[in-house]
Every structure is written in structure tokens, then in C-alpha cells.
Design a protein around this nucleic acid. Structure first.
Length: 404
RNA sequence: CGGAGUGUAGGUCAUCGGUAGACCGCCGCGUUCGGGACGCGGAAGCAGUGAGUUCAAUUCUCACCACUCCGACCA
């Protein structure tokens, strides 16, 4: 992509009405645009990051044997009445009326997926059933905040599984937990599995995937030597005390961001929706847009963003520093075409602007590899990682090799 | 929903009772070219919205709205 054709540009200054680091950086670097509090457009750069995140999730979830589909976001009131959540989730659900008929905007899909499964009239051989989709969630937040981390509207991958026994449900439940660990690891996020309450979803304990981060709105307590971790809402002890599980480690209190969660829902949903047999349901969510915000919050320095290569909008950022005869930019054009031909995702800053401006923007946008073509580089190309200061002069072939 | 703060050009900010200005960005021309270069020219604003005070309101008063932060609530 040529920078001159890229919709959405970088800003010289941070927007003043954002305080949270993720929103400041993403807005300034041209990844997102704000429509209203808690509602953001993903601009082309941001959308590419979101797609990278989706692809990683899709690949791992598919490998657990789940099917991707797409469910509607506008729901009739009646289906929510079956479980009583039209009333109990009133606080969080956008509810609307048109021509004397009431609708809700999707904040989750348990009712819809259960209805779908029941209608499908599955034979016992078809279980477990595992379906998921990526879609928008609408939640009426009393106070949207922290930029892209808590919105009224956000993207979510939600997976649902239905089982004929509790054992089978928990077997898959932990398989998904492992898959989640892999997903977050691939994105550069180190997560802790934290026990928590189920809110409007279930009375069972659930598990949250938390990334330690000072800017997070959750508080968790975890053990420094075993895997014990609980959300503040259910933990009864204090930091510094002995771990109740391993009896050896010490409990540490920390702020964190919840990037995913899994719910062992049990038989309530299928039962209330009129299924004759016992059916165990579980649901599993990851919010790609929140993940993007979390990565922005963690991977940055005073110059801008520093994307892990797995989720970066492009693999390389190509810059040319022109000479008087304009021969350098013609050379850079050719290198750009060759990189594209090699199927490398490249953002090419083809603007006729000063070197300083191009360097600043490259640092701000945070693509992991920067390539420079200039009078100084001769017939080679300068290679620099966004995360390091060192530069090297390499041949085109060597660059392609490293990127692949 | 309670508390605090802020609303002037696409962005950051000036002006402050007499009808709007800078810088950045954008467009054009020229000169530049290794860390946000420079000159000249240009486009861009119902001063958040509404009411009140006044001969006159961006400026003072009130209400509303929006945004940000703290709290309550929450993936």
C-alpha cells in the first residue's frame, strides 16, 4: 500500500480529549476514529490489525473442530423472554421498539444459538456441537472509557458448545482454554487464567484471561509460584499472604485487562428454551478490538506504537529519502513493486516530504521492520527493527529471506 | 446515575463585550532532502445548541447537549 493512497492519516499532536494511552496512540497514528464515546471506526490500518487478530483466533478455534457461522444482531424480544434475560439484562441490552414490536440488539448469543441448535434437531451422534462467529456486540455501558477497551459497540468472537454430559462439556472447556493460551501467546500477550463470577451469564465460576497491565480496570490476586488466580470480586484474602492452593507461594495483587473469558453455563439455557433432553452449554469470548487496544497499551514507547509482527498492519514500512535528480524515489518504486510481487505486506511512504517526517510517522505507526532507500544506501537497503536502534545494509534477497 | 473538568478551522491552541487569529495539516507553485525544512499564494469557522442580559455576546448568565476523568456498573 502506498501511503499516499492510504485513507486515514497521522496527526502531529495527541488529540486532547483522550487520556487513555491506547486511544491516544491509535487515534494519532491513524488506526481509529471516534464517532462517539465508546464507538470507534477501525480505519484501514486498524482494520488490518483487527483482521490479523481475527485470523489467529479463527485458525486456533477451527483446530478445536468448531464451525464458523454468522448470527443476526437484531433479536426479537420473545426469544430473550424464554430465559428471562429480557428483564434481567435490561441494564446492558439496547432494547428498541418499532411498529409495536420489541427488539434487542445483541450483547451475546446464548439464546439465539440454543434456539438454533434445538431447531436443527440434532441426533446424539452430532454432539458435541461447536459453533462460533465474529460479530459486533452492543452493550449499554453506563460509562464507556479507556478508549477502545470499553465501548458501547465492539467486536467479539463468541464460541458456543453444546454437550450431552457435564464431563464432555468440561473436556472441551479446557481444550478451549488451552487454545486461548496459544492464541494470546501468538499475539504477544502473556495471560493468566483467573477464576471469576459469571455475572448475567451463569451462577458457576467462570474463567477470565487477564493480561497484567497498570491501565487495566480489573484487579486480580494471583500466586507467584503456582497457577492460582482469582478476580477481586470473589477473592477473600489479601495480597502478601500465603497462597491458599499451593501453600508455598505468596499472593500478589495486580491490575489487569480481561481479553477473553469462558463460561461453563450448564443446562439452564436448553432447559428454559424447551429442550427435552439435558444439554450442557458453554460459551467462550474474545474481543478482537479490546485485544488490539491491549496490545497498543502494552507495546509502545515515547515515539509511538510497536506492533508484534503477528498482528502488525504491514510487515514492512518502506521509506525513500530522495535526491535532487529524483532517482532514489524511482528506485524505491521498483523495490516496492518487487516486495509486493514477493507477497510481502508493505506500507510504502511515497510522499514527497522530508525524511524527518517519514521517520517520525514510521515510528508512530509502529510497523516492526523499517526499510530505507537513500543516496547513502547505494545498491543496498537499510533494515531496522522498530524495537531496536541498530541498522544494517542488506541486499534485496536477504530482506525477502528474513521476512519469509 | 452522582461528582469534577473541557467545548473556538481537520488537529493543537490564542483572543475575551464591538462580529475571529496563530501554528500544524490540506491545495497550488518553487527551493529542499538521514529525524516533523523553507518561501509565496489559496481553501477551510452559524465560536457545541438554545434562551436571557445588552445598542452590541465567542466573551456575561441560565438551561440543555457532547467529550474526558473519578465513582457506581460492566466483555
Amino acid at each position: 500500500m502506498r501511503y499516499s493512497k492510504l485513507f486515514g492519516k497521522t496527526l502531529r499532536e495527541f488529540p486532547k480529549d483522550e487520556v487513555s494511552l491506547n486511544a491516544k496512540l491509535l487515534l494519532r497514528a491513524g488506526f481509529i476514529d471516534k464517532l462517539m464515546a465508546g464507538s470507534y471506526t477501525l480505519l484501514p490500518l486498524g482494520f488490518r490489525v483487527e483482521q490479523k487478530i481475527e485470523d489467529i483466533i479463527r485458525e486456533e478455534i477451527n483446530s478445536t473442530g468448531a464451525n464458523e457461522l454468522l448470527m443476526p444482531l437484531l433479536h426479537p424480544k420473545e426469544i430473550w423472554n424464554k430465559t428471562g434475560r429480557w428483564e434481567s439484562a435490561k441494564e446492558i441490552m439496547y432494547q428498541l421498539e418499532k411498529d409495536e414490536k420489541e427488539f434487542g440488539l445483541s450483547f451475546t448469543h446464548e439464546e439465539i444459538v440454543t434456539d438454533l441448535i434445538i431447531k436443527h434437531n440434532p441426533s446424539p451422534k452430532e454432539f458435541p456441537i461447536k459453533v462460533y462467529h465474529f460479530s459486533t456486540k452492543f452493550r449499554h455501558e453506563a460509562r464507556p472509557k479507556s478508549g477502545i477497551l470499553r465501548g458501547r459497540e465492539f467486536l467479539m468472537k463468541d464460541l458456543y458448545s453444546a454437550h450431552l454430559s457435564e464431563e464432555d462439556m468440561y473436556k472441551y472447556y479446557w481444550e478451549v482454554a488451552d487454545s486461548y493460551i496459544k492464541i494470546f501467546k501468538r499475539m504477544g500477550l502473556d495471560v493468566k487464567i483467573v477464576e471469576a463470577s459469571g455475572g448475567v451469564f451463569t451462577k458457576n465460576y467462570t474463567h477470565e484471561f487477564q493480561v497484567l497491565c497498570e491501565q487495566g480496570e480489573d484487579t486480580i490476586f494471583y500466586c507467584d509460584s503456582c497457577d492460582f488466580a482469582q478476580n477481586k470480586e470473589i477473592f477473600s484474602g489479601k495480597s502478601g499472604e500465603e497462597c491458599p492452593k499451593c501453600k508455598k507461594g505468596k499472593i500478589i495483587e495486580a491490575k489487569s485487562i480481561e481479553v477473553g473469558n469462558i463460561f461453563p453455563l450448564g443446562t439452564m439455557y436448553a432447559q428454559k428454551m424447551g429442550y427435552k433432553e439435558k444439554l450442557w452449554l458453554a460459551s467462550y469470548g474474545i474481543g478482537p478490538t479490546r485485544v488490539m487496544g491491549t496490545i497498543a497499551e502494552i507495546y509502545n514507547d515515547d515515539k509511538g506504537l510497536i506492533w508484534p509482527s503477528s498482528v502488525a498492519p504491514y510487515q514492512v514500512h518502506l521509506i525513500s529519502i530522495d535526491n535532487e535528480e529524483k532517482t532514489i524515489s524511482r528506485e524505491a518504486d521498483k523495490i516496492y513493486e518487487r516486495l509486493v510481487a514477493e507477497r510481502i505486506e508493505v506500507l510504502y511512504d511515497d510522499r514527497d516530504s522530508s525524511p524527518g517526517e517519514k521517520f517520525k510517522d514510521a515510528d508512530l505507526i509502529g510497523i516492526p521492520v523499517r526499510l530505507v532507500v537513500s543516496a547513502k544506501t547505494g545498491n543496498k537497503i537499510e533494515w531496522k527493527l522498530r524495537s531496536k536502534d541498530k541498522t544494517e545494509l542488506l541486499d534485496f534477497e536477504e530482506i525477502v529471506k528474513r521476512l519469509k
